[in-house]
Nucleic acid binder design. Structure first.
Lengths: 345, 345
DNA sequence: TTGTACGCGTTATCAG
DNA sequence: CTGATAACGCGTACAA
């Protein structure tokens, strides 16, 4: 006898369900995966059997047999950055609600690692990829990654981008230009004329877009001497950029950070130096991460609904039928708190 | 001819590598997975072929053939809570460095969902599970989850807990009792006697342990009337608990939050009411999440190295040979900032 | 509609 | 040390 009585590890297989229901494994498979119609009677029997056995499909077998897995590959920079963490929260929430898992793929803002990340995800046959990191401005760098991404989509994978438009797929995009313009306008309306911007690397499209928003507002306000300082898109980057800005232009009355994380760095430097915010210098951010309201002083910023963006992206990934490309714009809103005031007299 | 010329999606298979190297797929498999010794000559040829073809194993096929996958299932509450986000950062970092992926499983602090999470991870044959959420105090609730977890470990999965000891597996554990005692002692040393504690639900072991640390310090300091308020282990929970505490005991000079997130909630309530920190009331947290230093005022707390804990846990999961259970204690350190001062005269 | 049988890509077993 | 070959669990043409 070659009959393997009760083998492996006790996990029931599809065959067990089929046997118990008195049907073929094909029928069991069809009812469980819903790929084809099955008579109501058999359908019920299969479902009961599966339930009684506490059957769960083996995703690997399923994938090997041709399909993709119920996993969303989420590509982010630094999962411990609040911006991405909040997005991830939204993605995880929706995915979990649909029985999907979320695999976090870390990028380190180099396109080679992005490429490796995408390849890994493809190799794992994940059913969807949500790419939350900003795209690169450099077309060449984008090319390799995008090619891989599009090949993935072409082979049936669902692809959704958060925050960049230049990828040919569903996308959830904040209006980075508009958001940045709004904070700049707020400062200008308060009377600021000598403004500095602390910015992330210009290789990121998010940075470029937000920078453009500032320039738009400045031009409209007749301001021509905005001071720029570029650094990493992090708290430490914010510190470094602020220090440089202060050294170059001691007359600034306002600092615009291109995201809240950098703004936190700016605040910390100003606090160390005893420069009062907002009395001597106003500071703004963009994103409205949760802690923005609890900083010292509470940060004036522009709210982007990160968690909701994550949820939307996950929904697009899970629901997206054969339909055309969908780009969902998300609202932003100026949130005025305690870190901005008119410039000193 | 039944020969499938170039099928599926162009992804090279092990057979392709074997053919190109002029060996059997068995040999190719052995060299690539390193399961058995292979002569240096063949080994080199296989490696070259694999490299030339840009071959990557199909993890599903590998898993189906008997093994587990190179995936760490990370169970956390709220990936967007800084505490867990920082831990996740550490796990993702180490995992990525070893070619492993990280799958985030969300728990919602109910044991049924925990159970579902573990089952899902098992069903996916993940190679390791790192469970970062606090355990439950209720033995009954633990039982079902723990049984599942131990079955997982028994079947070859690597299991590592962060923050609870009562699971029979490798663990990375902070001294929650000691950490809480340290902040309480700090306040007592400053002269505080009328102290309130805002705490998470007592169903979590972390909460219970930290609470005990407070009680120890209070007893040693001869303080018997500590005021307690329980709520969710979140910012909003911190707000709710603080409001209740203030209503019951208007004479408090210090509020101990059992984690930084709740402390943030406490600070926000006190700020709204115009109660000055630390002049009127001192506030402390536990964890030292990154933003603790940037709050208003900067938070006095106890540092737990979350990122490092995540890294350690991942290493334990990936390296752990057949060795015995290892429990790694992590250091904590009181960080005195601006939110504590002697009580008002 | 339902069942049979083959293939998905690897690992493991068992001979050589 | 190396090579056939049988699983692994499931989807799905194909046939009935």
């Amino acid at each position: 006898m070659t009959v393997r009585a009760r083998d492996t590890d006790g996990t029931p297989r599809l065959a067990d369900v089929a046997t118990r229901a008195g049907v073929s494994i094909a029928t069991a498979s069809r009812t469980l995966s819903g790929s084809r119609a099955v008579s109501a009677d058999l359908r019920r029997r299969v479902l009961e059997a599966a339930d009684a056995l506490a059957y769960t499909v083996n995703p690997h077998a399923r994938s090997l047999a041709g399909g993709l897995t119920s996993v969303i590959g989420l590509m982010v920079y630094e999962i411990d950055d609040p911006y991405f963490a909040e997005i991830a929260g939204g993605v995880v929430e929706v995915a979990g609600g649909h029985g999907w898992s979320v695999q976090v793929s870390h990028q380190d803002r180099t396109h080679t690692s992005d490429l490796a990340g995408v390849r890994l995800l493809r190799g794992q046959r994940v059913g969807a990829i949500v790419i939350a990191g900003s795209g690169y401005r450099d077309a060449g760098k984008n090319a390799t990654v995008n090619t891989e991404l599009e090949a993935y989509a072409a082979s049936g994978g669902r692809l959704v981008a958060i925050g960049h438009r230049n990828l040919d797929c569903h996308a959830v995009v904040p209006d980075n230009v508009g958001a940045a313009r709004v904070v700049a306008e707020h400062l200008i309306a308060l009377g600021h004329r000598r403004i500095g911007v602390i910015s992330g690397p210009e290789t990121l499209t998010t940075v470029v877009d937000r920078g453009r928003g500032i320039e738009d507002a400045a031009a409209a306000g007749g301001i021509t001497d905005i001071a720029w300082a570029h650094a990493a898109f992090t708290r430490d980057g914010g510190r470094a950029a602020t220090i440089r800005l202060l050294a170059e232009r001691s007359d600034l009355t306002a600092v615009i950070a291109l995201n809240d994380t950098m703004a936190i760095g700016a605040l910390s430097v100003l606090r160390e130096r005893g420069i009062r915010v907002p009395q001597a210098v106003s500071v703004t951010g963009i994103d409205d991460i949760q802690v923005a309201q609890d900083l010292a002083p509470a940060l004036t910023t522009v709210r982007l609904p990160m968690a909701s963006m994550g949820r939307q992206a996950a929904l697009l990934a899970l629901q997206s039928g054969p339909g055309a490309r969908r780009v969902e714009e998300v609202e932003h809103e100026l949130v005025v708190r305690a870190s901005t005031a008119p410039p000193p007299a």
